[in-house]
């Protein structure tokens, strides 16, 4: 023992040293560092969970947004379609109206023309009759007998009728 240098006081001193070092390291290093490691672990876990949550939220939000967008798009499409339909209908209606109006106007004009023409013809006939009567009177007064006069008038009227019909 002596040759190996074993000395009880030194042995005890070294044991005490170890105990002291254990205490120092426990208070100065192990406790704070282990606490810090644990804190960091907790913090990282929390952060990861938070990130997951945020990610999930974002995904949900995006989904909702996309749904909304899709709905809006569909609505817009429907609105456009209905507007187009309405426009088409309106166009049809306006066209029909215009057409009807035009036809009416044309008819009216035709009627007017026909009427006026009839009137004119009637007036003309009247005029012709009077003129012929006048002419006839003048002729009769000079040379014609009753028979020849009538024949002449009839002939004339027939001619004017044909003329009027044209």
């Amino acid at each position: 023992m002596e040759k190996l240098g074993i000395n009880v006081t030194w042995l005890i001193a070294q044991a005490v040293n170890f105990g002291l070092l254990l205490f120092i390291l426990w208070t100065l290093a192990y406790k704070p560092v282990l606490k810090m490691l644990n804190d960091r672990k907790v913090k990282i876990q929390e952060s990861l969970e938070y990130a997951d949550k945020v990610k999930q939220d974002a995904a949900e939000q995006q989904k909702a947004f996309e749904q909304k967008l899709e709905a809006t798009r569909r609505e817009m499409q429907a609105a456009t379609a209905s507007a187009a339909q309405a426009g088409e209908k309106e166009k049809e209606r306006i066209l029909a109206e215009a057409r009807a109006e035009a036809r009416k106007l044309v008819d009216q004009a035709k009627e007017q023309i026909a009427y006026e023409r009839k009137q004119m013809l009637a007036e003309l006939r009247q005029e012709v009759v009077q003129l012929s009567l006048l002419a006839a009177q003048k002729v009769v007064r000079t040379s014609l007998d009753e028979q020849a006069q009538r024949a002449l008038i009839n002939d004339f009227l027939a001619q004017t009728d044909a003329l009027g019909k044209n």
Binding site: L4, G5, I6, N7, W10, L11, I12, A13, Q14, A15, N17, F18
Partner: peptide, 9 residues
């Protein structure tokens, strides 16, 4: 390099 230390440990 001292037996006292290693023995104590």
């Amino acid at each position: 390099t001292d037996i006292n230390t290693t023995l104590a440990l």
